[in-house]
């Protein structure tokens, strides 16, 4: 698993946020566009792209995109 691909896949779930805002250390919950609908898209993306089940609790426990990447890669 590659962090850059993960960030790209993560960013693709957003419509309005500039790509440059998505970095490893980005606190995704602070993004204006972040909401529960985007969270569902992230769960779907992780399922489709990585065949990993990402739970709501795991998303709630993570702060940065890097945190999420670690959770997913540890399950791989």
């Amino acid at each position: 698993m590659n962090i850059d691909d993960f960030i790209n896949n993560f960013a693709e779930q957003f419509d309005e946020t500039e790509k440059s805002e998505f970095l490893q250390e980005t606190t995704f919950r602070d993004l204006d566009e972040w909401d529960s609908m985007i969270a569902l898209s992230i769960i779907g993306m992780v399922d489709e792209e990585y065949d990993i089940e990402l739970t709501g609790d795991e998303i709630r426990a993570a702060n940065t995109i890097s945190d999420l990447f670690k959770i997913v890669s540890n399950k791989k």
Partner: peptide, 25 residues
């Protein structure tokens, strides 16, 4: 409750993320 939501213990609660996860798996 969560952002944008208020409810009582007598109301329906749905944890959207858990239900979505359950359904897609």
């Amino acid at each position: 409750a969560e952002e944008g939501c208020s409810r009582s213990q007598d109301d329906l609660f749905m944890d959207g993320m858990s239900v979505f996860n359950f359904a897609i798996t």
